[in-house]
């Protein structure tokens, strides 16, 4: 096995003697880990895409057939508001900037528009800029407002359901405290001399 193949095994997390089925399962797991949906509102979407590409390349190196990829989600192509031809180019430019990760420039461009508060497309795109910044509350508010202004737009409706995500099932099951010592991970602080002083600084950490 060449060094390149060994690296590919490490990336997929399989042994060098893994069977075809094991390779397929590992590849699926890794692709699901960096799933496009998980990175929709994240500034790290480009890194996740790179990682998926590396995983596919590793799989191709180790196994001849193409991996079965999980269903991919693509945001709808830029669709400018039909009733505001003047805003068409701005909308497309903002979308291009957002796709390139230039959130500040996109926000500045939107802010310069006179009807930024009333044009549903601009309101929606403002929501998207907030989403990319990780400002989830304002993103929800803008997208909801855009949906109210243009209730028949499917893209806006779909986006409002995507910003807020649910925890993975494993985390949900265990989120309630298991027993009285559930959350307190470290006994050392409580026993340290510093407890009283620390509490006075950070108000009961």
């Amino acid at each position: 096995m060449t060094e390149e193949q060994k690296n590919a095994c490490r990336l997929l997390g399989v042994s060098e003697t893994a069977s075809q089925a094991e390779l397929q399962a590992a590849c699926d797991n890794q692709l699901a880990r960096f799933d496009e949906m998980k990175y929709l509102g994240s500034p790290l979407a480009d890194m996740a895409a790179q990682k998926r590409e590396q995983i596919r390349a590793a799989y191709r190196l180790l196994a001849a057939p193409e991996p079965v990829e999980p269903p991919s989600f693509e945001l709808p192509a830029p669709k400018p508001a039909a009733d505001s031809p003047a805003g068409e180019s701005v909308s497309v430019r903002v979308r291009r900037l957002l796709n390139a990760g230039d959130v500040e420039e996109a926000d500045a461009l939107l802010s310069a528009q006179p009807d930024v508060e009333t044009n549903p497309e601009y309101v929606y795109l403002r929501g998207m800029t907030r989403w990319k910044q990780g400002w989830l509350d304002e993103a929800c508010q803008y997208v909801d407002q855009a949906t109210k202004l243009a209730p028949r737009n499917d893209e806006y409706k779909a986006a409002s359901g995507m910003i807020l995500t649910e925890l993975p099932p494993a985390a949900k099951v265990k989120r309630s405290f298991a027993g009285k010592t559930g959350w307190a991970a470290c006994g050392c602080l409580s026993e340290c001399l510093c407890e009283a002083l620390c509490e006075s600084i950070c108000e009961g950490c």
Partner: peptide
Amino acid sequence: YLGLPAVYTAVKTGRFRAKAKEFPRKENQP
């Protein structure tokens, strides 16, 4: 995935501060 949601749940239910005070001191020692 577990610690952050658990702390939020404790804060939400008002048990976070209470738990900090009633934390058993000897039980958790390694």
